[in-house]
Nucleic acid binder design. Structure first.
Lengths: 363, 363
DNA sequence: CGATATCTGGATAACGTTATCCAAAATCGA
DNA sequence: TCGATTTTGGATAACGTTATCCAGATATCG
């Protein structure tokens, strides 16, 4: 046994070296065990594992990062206020739970911070990135995706070669929303979407607008109306007031996302209009608050869980070596609730669970 | 000028060495500039900074982690659904924006994952941790706090020596809620709090309960009622149904937190009761959704922004070397809205902004 | 049974940064 | 002007891990 003089170990930090000495093997051998690498006998492996367990050893991600992987996946989230995002995260975690990977989330408060967050993730040698509803300018994006495996959620770019995307079929979702409103008897809907400084043509909101427009045009409404507003309650309220008290007031409103539709709902009620009798409202995402009685919001479901799972799977595949791009699109569906019900089904059992509608019409 | 033979640089990666060569100085000198360390002339410094800028150099956090700091602060968040947390994060970011520190958030989905997230942060050599509404078992906590600077938000432990805490005065907040309900004419309130497997005596929910109990007892209500329920809509609804359809139904409900009170609101309305006429509802946190017309929820404000700022400041101080513990407590206040208004002030200007009430009574 | 292939374990050299020194240069004080 | 002090810049040695070898041991095959 190779017992060194046992110098006065000044620090108690357990490193791979401590483990190696304890197990009576070399440092590289322990490393191989840690990485499930080839070249260790079952006997040696179990001895090492025992030592690791006994010494409570945990490898340093910093040191690992200098040569190999950090087993860290970065998630970039635009904000924490959108109630749809948690569901995506759940899906991601469900897949990653079985793996040695850990996720750390960068929360983009102010727009423009995306770059610095992504850079921070690069600096920290993360093994991959999942970006939710965010995209960098094309040049930066290319740089990032070439630097590490990247999956983007909620941004359509089916021709992208260097990264994967996972999306709901937002064009179709927009159509479903429009068709549902018409089907419920509304004649004069307006879609309310978000104003953004960094409009990217293929972002989800744009596609929902496009789907909405096509469906209404197909139904004979020549000039489908769409307005934009910042996503703060005050701005939304001002916009809605302008619409409802202006000329040709709409009888239905389509909010581009749930958290947004909830603000619309607030504004409509604040102005004294009844939902759904005076104004019908439909959102997008079918997030948790939709089913609260006070909201009772019809919405387009896009299964965040599945989107999250697919994103995580794709990222693992990329980390595993895949280089061809994969672009996943999931199917949306309408979940009807009181906000488009004309007669509010407050006392029906269906109220809290929502009722599914079939797809009214293909493109 | 010390120009090496310029070997076929096989990789384009810009390291501290590249910068040093480019600026014509040694590697340690560049390092000093990066850390604002003593021992570099203004001239050398500016030359190095120019090179950094020109080469677009970014230091590797992994390499840094092996010797010095990683300039990374870990935030541990219980979940992303509570609308109060984003406000805390805003406060934290506001302080950290001026510094070289980056925050990465670990989102604890399932309870019990806290340990693995904190471990992941330790493994990644983070410089400090802010834990929100979470705490490890005392032994683990001691270990973590001795390993790196730690600040805990939303957990009271004024005697803790190894970490700082930032809290609202939840005892007082509980009293304010109770007093407000009485003041509005409600006679028979019930507090609805959350069931937890890991009840810690000094956690915020417990203190709110205690404050609520004391205030009611002081007002002559001998046995203040408190019930607990899991924080899922279905469970809350069942609990509320049980209360309102049972013996001695309450005329007011105090939800331990806003996101919870919103579920209570949903349940109460689903059962056909009017708010605030039949049942008054008050929450805690004064988060964004409170001001939505459909919620119009009275709540106890605890200024998440300030809590976040203080937490970040304390952590920076600890990273800077402070070792004595500091425990900050902020003052709560009532923000009255329609849900406890008896007459819902839907058309008043006060509806969306809420009206502040003075502190009804000291302890 | 000898030659060859496979398996196992370790020696060695990075990875990119910072901490700790130390020597030379510049500044200061009398 | 000369020694004493301060400032500056760099040489050197880590930090904890993994990748790339290579040699010895073991298994396989004709």
């Amino acid at each position: 046994m190779k017992t060194t003089q046992s110098a006065p170990k000044k620090d108690v930090r357990v490193t791979i070296k401590t483990v190696a000495e304890h197990a009576g093997v070399s440092v590289p051998t322990v490393s191989k065990v840690l990485r499930n690498a080839y070249g260790v006998s079952a006997k040696a492996r179990s001895r090492v594992l025992a030592s690791i367990d006994q010494l409570q050893y945990r490898p340093s991600a910093s040191a690992r990062g200098m040569r190999g992987q950090t087993y860290t996946i970065g998630i970039v989230m635009p904000d924490v206020r959108n109630p749809f995002f948690p569901t995506i995260l759940e899906g991601v975690e469900a897949v990653l739970a079985e793996t040695p990977y850990v996720t750390l989330t960068g929360i983009v408060g102010k727009p423009g911070k995306v770059v610095s967050i992504v850079n921070a993730m690069l600096d920290r040698q993360m093994d991959g990135i999942i970006m939710i509803g965010q995209r960098l300018p094309p040049e930066e994006m290319k740089l990032v995706a070439s630097a590490l495996p990247t999956v983007i959620v909620a941004h359509h770019e089916p021709d992208a070669l260097t990264f994967d995307t996972v999306n709901n079929d937002d064009l179709r979702g927009g159509q479903l929303a429009a068709d549902h409103l018409l089907q419920q008897g509304y004649k004069n809907p307006v879609m309310v979407t978000i104003t953004r400084q960094d409009i990217v043509r293929m972002d989800v909101d744009q596609l929902r607008v496009e789907g909405y427009r096509r469906a209404l045009a197909a139904a004979g409404i020549s000039v489908p109306r769409v307005v934009a507003s910042a996503d703060m309650l005050d701005d939304v309220t001002a916009t809605i007031r302008h619409l409802l008290e202006g000329e040709d007031p709409p009888d239905a409103l389509f909010g581009w996302a749930d958290y947004y539709a909830l603000e619309i709902l607030s504004a409509v009620r604040a102005l004294g209009y009844r939902v759904p009798e005076d104004v019908g409202i439909i959102g997008y995402d079918n997030s948790d608050p939709c089913s609260y009685t006070q909201n009772d919001l019809t919405s387009i479901d896009q299964s965040g869980q599945e989107i999250g799972r697919r994103a995580a799977q794709l990222l693992l595949e990329r980390i595993g070596g895949r280089t061809e791009a994969v672009h996943v699109v999931t199917e949306p569906k309408v979940v009807g609730r009181g906000s488009t019900g004309r007669i509010p089904p407050l006392d029906e059992a269906a109220a809290s669970n929502g009722a599914e509608f079939g797809s009214p019409q293909a493109i």
